[in-house]
Each structure stands twice: as structure tokens, then as C-alpha cells.
Amino acid sequence: MAKLFLLNPDFIDKKREDNIRYFCPHAAQMLGVLNYYPRLKELLEVVYVDFERPRKVLVDLIGEENQSCPNLVIPKSEVTPDDDLSYFDSYGEYYFQNNEELIYRYLSEKYGIGIPH
């Protein structure tokens, strides 16, 4: 199953001294898309990760240099000939994409949802 990695809400950026809680607007937008298209929640596993790096679960799957979020990770074993993953990167046994516009493009092509306008 494809996994969509999003940052946990209410994180504190420990590199700053202000102790302000933050949320990732890109993750919030992705969650909005999941709410618009509830069937996606059955087709994707949403995994929340902490803001701090390293994000071990992502590092283990697609390498330390690829741990940005949101990140859609697809096992190569689940790819079909109809899947256009030409705009995805590859690492080990996985394809991944952390550009949200390209994630939306994939979700539209694969699952027939709309794209941002």
C-alpha cells in the first residue's frame, strides 16, 4: 500500500528559541484533499512523523536525503503497467515524490480525483 507521510501537528522547531507550536500547511492541505475524497483514506496509509530529523521511518525506506514531507512512497512491487511514475524518484524498493503538486497529479491519474486549480 502506498504511504503518505505527513508531519505531526503542533510541533516545536527546536532550532528556534520561541517554543511556538507550528503545523505544516502542506500537510494540512493534504488532509483537506483526503477529506474531499474520503476513498483515498482506504487506498493510502497516512503516516504521521515528527518534525525533527532524522525521520527514521522515511530514512529507512528512501534514504536520509529524501525525508521531506509530505512524501508519497509507493512500493515498486505494487506498481502496475498503467502507473506513470516517470516524475517519481526511485530508491531501493520504492518510488517516492515529495512535491505536493506532483503528488496531486499522481492521485488524480491513479484514483480519478480532481487537481488543484
Rank of each mutant, 00 (worst) to 15 (best):
residue 74 I to R: 04
residue 6 L to N: 09
residue 61 L to Q: 12
residue 38 P to G: 03
residue 75 P to H: 07
residue 30 M to T: 09
residue 37 Y to W: 14
residue 106 Y to V: 05
residue 20 I to T: 11
residue 55 R to D: 02
residue 56 K to H: 12
residue 107 L to Q: 06
residue 54 P to M: 03
residue 52 E to M: 11
residue 74 I to Q: 02
residue 65 E to M: 15
residue 21 R to V: 11
residue 36 Y to P: 00
residue 105 R to I: 04
residue 45 E to F: 06
residue 97 Q to L: 09
residue 41 K to C: 11
residue 30 M to D: 11
residue 25 P to K: 07
residue 65 E to W: 14
residue 1 M to L: 15
residue 117 H to I: 10
residue 83 D to G: 00
residue 89 D to C: 14
residue 99 N to I: 07
residue 60 D to H: 11
residue 33 V to K: 04
residue 117 H to P: 07
residue 68 S to C: 11
residue 82 D to F: 07
residue 33 V to S: 01
residue 13 D to G: 05
residue 95 Y to G: 00
residue 104 Y to C: 01
residue 92 G to Y: 09
residue 61 L to C: 02
residue 87 Y to E: 13
residue 66 N to E: 10
residue 63 G to V: 10
residue 91 Y to C: 08
residue 84 D to N: 14
residue 59 V to C: 13
residue 114 G to R: 10
residue 115 I to P: 00
residue 41 K to G: 06
residue 67 Q to Y: 08
residue 51 F to V: 04
residue 67 Q to F: 08
residue 56 K to C: 03
residue 117 H to R: 12
residue 45 E to M: 12
residue 2 A to F: 15
residue 59 V to A: 13
residue 92 G to T: 04
residue 101 E to A: 14
residue 66 N to W: 12
residue 72 L to H: 05
residue 74 I to G: 00
residue 71 N to H: 14
residue 40 L to A: 06
residue 82 D to R: 04
residue 106 Y to W: 14
residue 79 V to M: 06
residue 32 G to W: 11
residue 32 G to C: 11
residue 58 L to H: 05
